[in-house]
Simulated scan of single mutants.
Amino acid sequence: MTDAVLHVHIADAIATLTLNRPQRFNALDVALIDALRRTLDELAVREDVRALVLTGAGRAFCSGADLAAGGASGTGRDYDGILDLPPEGRSAELRHIGDDTRDGLLQHFHPLIRQIADHPKAVVCAVNGTAAGGGVGLALACDIVLASRSARFIQVFAPRLGLVPDCGISWQLPRTVGRARSLALALLGEPVSADEAERLGLIWRAVDDDALAAEAQRVAARLAANPTHVNAEVKALLRRSPEHDLATQLDLEAQLQGECGAKPSFVEGVLAFQQKREPVFHPAPTPDD
């Protein structure tokens, strides 16, 4: 399951996925995206894996699309001389670049974001350094985001690249930090520290650098102790709430609660409450849990 650009370690029901392109600040190219997507597919059906941790090797978490490999398109296009072409030739080249950029997002980057957000296992992100551009979107697609205090979140799109936010950032920011802050972050591109990201509600918690890996494993272990299906249902319930009115959301709560109540894990939870002990939801992997 391990690719050179992605390290995967599985222990105690937790799969730790480490982006492994430190020389490129873990920039996303097609090879890394494909490795992530294959691994996420495999982990989705492994009963011995109940939670995931996503982090990066080296000094950065993820610097977004690998511009040296053609950015979102992954074509490795040479941009030298394009702006010096006659108007007709330049317009044609720019149209090709725009089409490649759009198609790269639709075929590679955005399917990865959806796959993480909709993954049946809970996903913890441990942002171990700078998250820039699409790297921010990659982190925010996860369920619980921790960051080392030296980490920074940077929106490079508008001020540095002449682009709009992608990888789900334009959906995430207004729902987490509000309209005013979203516009300022996206338009100005000023770095946000981990402590500030916690204060804004962009992430769950900032922790000391040397404590990040252990804290991510601790949080993942707590998630792995939950019934796996409940983690998936909570994710679905909360992600769908912005599109629903109260009545629709109440109906969805009732539906999912009925489904959860029909599982053995609910009986174990009630028995543990009555017996004044901690519930044990995973004595062994079963299809029902």
Rank of each mutant, 00 (worst) to 15 (best):
S73L: 05
T228V: 12
C125G: 09
R205V: 00
E268N: 05
I203D: 03
A122G: 07
A68K: 13
E259V: 00
A236H: 06
R152K: 15
R175T: 03
L200Y: 13
D3V: 01
R90K: 15
A194D: 03
G71I: 07
F109C: 12
L202T: 06
H119L: 08
W204P: 00
P287T: 14
G168Q: 10
D143G: 10
I116R: 04
A4S: 14
W204S: 14
G269Q: 05
F109Y: 11
A184L: 04
I116T: 06
A224E: 09
G64F: 12
C142H: 02
L200D: 15
C260H: 02
H119S: 05
L185R: 04
I113L: 04
A221G: 10
D195V: 04
E198Q: 15
A180W: 09
E196S: 09
Q155H: 13
S63I: 02
R277W: 03
T101N: 12
L146T: 11
R37C: 12
G178N: 06
P264D: 00
A206K: 11
L17C: 02
T286H: 13
A194E: 06
G134C: 08
N226L: 10
V123E: 02
Q249E: 11
I10Y: 07
S63P: 00
L85A: 11
A236G: 10
R102M: 09
A224N: 08
C142R: 02
V164S: 08
A158S: 11
R149F: 00
A15W: 06
A225K: 14
V45R: 15
V127L: 14
L173S: 05
G189M: 04
F61M: 10
L32R: 03
L6Q: 06
D118S: 12
I203G: 04
D48W: 12
E196P: 00
D48L: 03
Q257R: 11
E42A: 11
L36I: 02
F157E: 15
G70N: 09
G56Q: 02
P285V: 10
V136N: 01
A272N: 06
F266D: 00
E190A: 13
A11Y: 07
F25E: 08
L112M: 07
L52K: 01
G178P: 06
A31T: 07
V127R: 06
A236R: 12
I10A: 01
L250Q: 04
E253T: 08
W204R: 15
A72D: 12
V127G: 13
P287E: 05
G201E: 15
D66M: 09
L43I: 09
A51K: 00
L237K: 04
F109E: 11
D288Y: 14
R179H: 13
I154G: 01
